[in-house]
């Protein structure tokens, strides 16, 4: 058992070293808020960086994150061209609340439903919020779990860096 776990840990560390620039999964089906099925290959931003945030209506820190970014979103877009894509992991219990929740909060993000959690599993999301930054080439360059007021500044720095890399 111990041996096995050690092996797993080693492989995992090996994985960390090698999987630096994992691409965003392409053909996983998620749903847009109007009920249409969309494949994850449709998550694009014309070669500019994207923030992908996994959240749920019932998750307070997720809501704090998305509400905090809302206030600076326009500035961020002007500065870096970034687009925020919010992936709701709400299940059948609260999925019907997602659209009213998004509109009620006045969020102008691109929002998708991942009810079957296929995208969540493919991205190895364990807890929400879990936020990724994807560069213009569709590579995942940064990820973080948890949100506290003020940590949006760190996120902006990462987005700026990703935007600069893309321009090169």
């Amino acid at each position: 058992m111990k041996k096995l776990f050690l092996t797993l840990a080693c492989i995992a560390l090996g994985g960390i070293a090698l999987a630096q620039n994992a691409q965003l999964p392409q053909n996983i089906t998620i749903k847009a808020l109007d009920g249409t099925s969309v494949q994850t290959s449709a998550i694009q931003n014309d070669g500019k960086p994207m923030i992908i945030s996994f959240w749920a209506t019932w998750c307070k820190p997720c809501n704090r994150e998305l509400n905090t970014i809302k206030e600076v979103y326009e500035e961020w877009q002007e500065e870096t061209g970034v687009k925020l894509v919010a992936i709701s992991i709400d299940d059948a219990r609260s999925a019907a609340r997602v659209k009213p929740h998004v509109d009620g909060n006045g969020w102008e993000y691109e929002v998708y439903l991942d009810q079957n959690q296929d995208f969540k599993r493919a991205m190895n999301v364990v807890n929400v919020p879990h936020t990724f930054v994807v560069n213009g080439k569709g590579e995942i360059v940064w990820q973080h779990t948890s949100f506290v007021e003020g940590s949006e500044e760190e996120l902006l720095e990462v987005v700026k860096k990703a935007a600069m890399e893309t321009e090169k």
């Binding site: 609340r97 509109d103 006045g106």
Partner: peptide, 10 residues
């Protein structure tokens, strides 16, 4: 549901 920016009901 009915929703618009800043108001929603379901």
């Amino acid at each position: 549901t009915y929703s618009q920016k800043g108001f929603s009901a379901n």
